[in-house]
Simulated scan of single mutants.
Amino acid sequence: MWDLVKGVATAFKARRVNTDSTIFKLHYQATFCTILVFTVILAANQYVGKPIRCLHQLSGQPDEVLDTFCWIHSTYTVTSAFLKKVGVEVPFPGVSGTRGSADDIKVYRFYQWVSFCLVFQAILFYAPRWLWKSWEGGKLQALKMDLDVGIMTEVDRKQKEEMMLTYLQNNRQYHNFWAFKYFFCEFLALVNVIGQIFLMDHFLDGEFFTYGIDVINFMQSDQEDRVDPMIYIFPRMTKCTFYKYGVSGEVERHDSICILPLNIVNEKIYIVLWFWFIILAILTLLLIIYRLCMVTSYRLRAYLFKINYGLIRRSDIEKITRHYSVGDWYLLYMIGVNIDARIFNEVFHELAEKIIDDREEKRHII
């Protein structure tokens, strides 16, 4: 377990090169690692502890037989029994002496697959990051050239600045596809988090969409007037039917009550995931809207440079944003995130000066 936790912790290590946005990091760092931690907690309770305990009156049968059978073949509750008075009509919400009709039975099988489903969800959250990492190809790492330190000889600094300027000048108009691949990965992150909400709703038999709202409403109302949604979706006590041969060779039916302590953990995990996925989906949607505005408005791109890089002259910002494409602008913006502010100011000014020089050369040629 400790090895697994250490593996999760590596995703939080600070990276020397920043290639994406903070909201994008929430997907492949915060959400990815949180889900893996939840998986470790569930695995520890499921495979080390006792995820289910069933009470029975089977003579000569060990407890492990019925526990294993009910864990494998699922358990059930009686829906109408959730509305009955506990201690008077029923011993526990959802547990009734009569089985009831097929429509009145709610079967629970998901708890066997929760850990596997969470691992699959974690992989999906990391997939856009893996895709962008392969597409980015280490471009920012190569262009940074240790210029984030700011402490180096004048000759070394000038040489690296000249190399960066040469690359940016010779490869203008070639970075649109590179930038739009990153924007596409952010869009994939939005599709993923929305799709995961639908996935969990299907996994929990259509109960996940309103799970968080139902929990809030339940806490604000009289407990006797409402069914606890956490107990309804993640019951702590259920029933299980076990069949065996009797002494005379006839099939005997035995109803047992099963306690599911693992669901106490499950209900807390999914209430956290419900709120977090809603928040993450809203933030990512706002990010996509922000990207659309950034792509379509050069004034917004200029404003972003002004508020994030105060040392740069406004005249230089206007020149760059007017004459550089969205992809070139975004690459330049990310370079500024990764290198020393003073050095970036010099590089930016030189690029703006070269725009003037190029225009003058074209006039002389004409």
Rank of each mutant, 00 (worst) to 15 (best):
R236D: 12
Q223N: 06
S221A: 15
E224P: 01
M230Q: 12
T241H: 04
I231A: 09
I233G: 00
T238C: 11
Y243E: 06
I231E: 15
M219K: 14
G212W: 04
D222M: 12
K239D: 04
Y243G: 01
C240V: 03
R226A: 13
D225P: 02
V227I: 15
M237D: 02
Q223L: 06
T241I: 09
K244A: 11
E224W: 10
G212E: 07
Q220A: 03
M237P: 03
R226N: 15
F234K: 08
D214Y: 03
D228C: 05
G246P: 04
T238E: 06
I216Y: 10
S221H: 13
Y245E: 12
V227S: 05
N217Y: 07
D228Y: 04
D222H: 14
C240R: 03
V227K: 07
C240P: 07
M219P: 00
M237T: 12
T238W: 11
Y232K: 14
Y245Q: 13
K244S: 13
V215Y: 09
F218V: 05
Y243W: 10
K239P: 01
D228N: 14
R236H: 13
K239S: 13
I233N: 02
P229C: 05
I213P: 00
T238R: 08
F234C: 08
F242K: 12
M230R: 14
C240A: 07
M230H: 00
Y243L: 13
Y245F: 13
Q220K: 10
I231K: 13
M237L: 10
N217L: 12
V227N: 05
R226E: 11
I233E: 00
T241V: 09
I213V: 09
F218E: 02
I233Y: 00
M237S: 11
E224L: 14
V215R: 11
N217P: 01
P235H: 01
Q223Y: 06
M230N: 02
P229F: 03
Y245A: 11
M219E: 09
M219S: 08
M230A: 08
Y243Q: 11
K239E: 10
F242E: 02
E224A: 14
E224F: 12
R236V: 07
N217K: 15
R226H: 15
V227L: 06
